[in-house]
């Protein structure tokens, strides 16, 4: 058989999801919608988790709404990486995706797609938190100034829906 007779099937698996954040992640995302970073304090070890998580792992304590604390929207960069290369295939045609998930509407379940480079993935210790928040720094001006130890402040999106990217990115102070 000629090598050009070997066949390949091109396709995709597209699934509309409605992920349940539950009580704790749900509050954290609700906080972002209101331009607030909420943390959760473990009553046993007193550590403050920001962003939220369902449990304090070491204590195996399940967070409750009353453990919520409000934190400033600024912090210090503990580690970062500047993503320069585009590691992804081209973004799919919305019509292809819409067809793949019909009759669910793509407007109701927008396509999830990674951000376009360049951007930096940063690990930010929010003031008053004991964990680090993984988020982005964008813009060449910010990327140039970025160092371990840089102070950063949140830049909020105009349109907010209760999604991680309501906090659009951090900018270097």
């Amino acid at each position: 058989m000629d090598s050009n007779q070997y066949r390949v099937l091109e396709g995709n698996i597209s699934v509309p999801y409605r992920w349940t954040p539950g009580d704790i992640y749900g509050r954290f995302l609700g906080g972002l919608k209101e331009k607030k970073i909420l943390g959760f304090r473990c009553p046993e070890c007193k550590k403050v988790y920001a962003p939220a998580t369902d449990i304090c792992t070491a204590c195996y304590y399940g967070f409750k709404p009353e453990d919520q604390v409000e934190l400033p929207d600024a912090g210090v960069v503990k580690s970062f990486t500047v993503v320069r290369a585009n590691l992804w295939p081209p973004k799919p045609d919305p019509e292809v995706v819409a067809k793949a998930i019909a009759p669910t509407k793509l407007e109701d379940h927008p396509l999830l797609w990674p951000p376009a480079p360049p951007y930096a993935l940063v690990s930010v210790k929010i003031e008053g938190a004991d964990t680090e928040f993984i988020h982005m720094v964008k813009g060449e001006r910010n990327l140039g100034k970025l160092k371990v130890g840089s102070k950063v402040k949140a830049v909020w999106a105009e349109q907010r829906e209760g999604y991680l990217l309501d906090l659009d990115h951090f900018e270097v102070a």
């Binding site: 509309p16 509050r27 906080g31």
Partner: peptide, 23 residues
């Protein structure tokens, strides 16, 4: 505690993964 904070009930997104399946 800030009782006014809205609790987000769901995050709705479509996950797309392209494939090339070999015969």
């Amino acid at each position: 505690v800030n009782k006014m904070t809205e609790i987000i009930k769901s995050v709705k997104r479509t996950n797309y993964v392209p494939y090339r399946w070999v015969y």
